[in-house]
Design a protein around this nucleic acid. Structure first.
Lengths: 191, 191
DNA sequence: GTTTGTCAACCGTCCGGTCGGTATAGTTGC
DNA sequence: GCAACTATACCGACCGGACGGTTGACAAAC
């Protein structure tokens, strides 16, 4: 389909390479030399584009934040109108299939952890994305707390998967989704 | 009350020191030398008790897993009989106050992350603890998925706090708890 | 001819792990 | 009773390698 994409520029190639390394071999393996080699440039070449290692990490995380924001926006747009549209988008985001297994998200998690490892402040761009989602969530016509509970459950599921804390089969996943969907009913708990 | 506790032995002191470092200054600051100094032994002394750095990490994580298991057991024991007793214990564990702000848990998170950073396989002891809790959860008289949803939400909240992704005020927390408690009602969603 | 992008060689530091050694407390043989 | 030996606990100098970052050179683009 898009096999004729132009070759990415050096910074992009470097960011890609760094992500690949972090995903495949963990934070410790992400050295300037390794990233440079993987990207097909020299260490000096890498340092021309990212003057410090921290700049590289920041670049990775900024791109990640943009990606996450765009992805959520896409899921939201695909959602039919509903009083709890944002909440339902989160549910879809969490449970709908392509997303669940996506290697993309393993990579996102790896980048996230790598950044946190180096300096928690690097996470700020992502924090802003989540804060934005939470603001949207507040505008849903739902009893207070329901949206947050669903969001927290989604995050918990995601984290659990990242850390290999629990792997659930399709049945359990479906049951969880059903449970959370009860919380996303507009009339739920209305007085 | 117990101010006459005997001084801890060297391995315990080292583990304590390592935890303190990891919590206060992050994974990167946990070097053998730093841990040794903080524990008041020499590097050689530390290596006598923990032959590799990995052994130190494993020791930290094993102790953590034991602590978490004991803590959950205590919360569970404090719970009055109820068809969804384990689920309610998780709710209490997640939301009841002393636990929420506890510095202990910041430390637990730091140890967890440090271990994961070094080698994800190190997390196995904790994984076992969570698997055990999940088994208990399944025995609650609740529609399938409700317990899991609550557990995931608790994990999400915990992770969110660790990574500073979102900080919720007391009202939001209370609303979340109320929402999740609806899922912990035995009759909830019964046909 | 200067700016832009890239390179390879190099440096200083830090860190995990090794190693030879010390001190104290048993244990054994006589 | 004591010498010889062993085990336990600990010390700190040192080594080798890795890693982040610097430097100076160089070629193509403008």
């Amino acid at each position: 389909m898009l096999d004729r994409a132009p070759p990415p520029d050096a910074p992009t190639r470097i960011l890609d390479a760094a992500e690949r390394i972090v995903q495949a071999r963990g934070v410790t393996a992400l050295t300037l030399e390794a990233a440079a080699r993987e990207a097909g440039v020299s260490k000096g070449g890498l340092l021309y584009h990212f003057a410090y290692k921290e700049a590289l990490l920041a670049g990775m995380l900024n791109r990640l934040a943009d990606g996450v924001a765009a992805e959520f926006e896409a899921v939201l747009d695909a959602q039919p109108p509903h009083p709890a549209r944002t909440t339902r988008a989160i549910l879809a985001w969490t449970f709908d299939d392509p997303h669940m297994v996506c290697e993309q998200h393993q990579r996102a998690a790896a980048v996230f952890l790598a950044a946190f490892h180096h300096d928690p402040a690097l996470l700020d761009p992502i924090r802003r994305v989540f804060a934005h989602i939470r603001d949207r969530l507040r505008q849903d016509a739902l009893p207070p707390g329901h949206g947050l509970a669903i969001m927290a459950a989604g995050d918990g599921l995601f984290m659990g998967r990242i850390f290999g804390m629990y792997t659930m089969d399709a049945d359990e996943l479906a049951a969880m989704r059903a449970a959370l969907e009860r919380l996303a009913e507009p009339q739920a708990g209305a007085p």
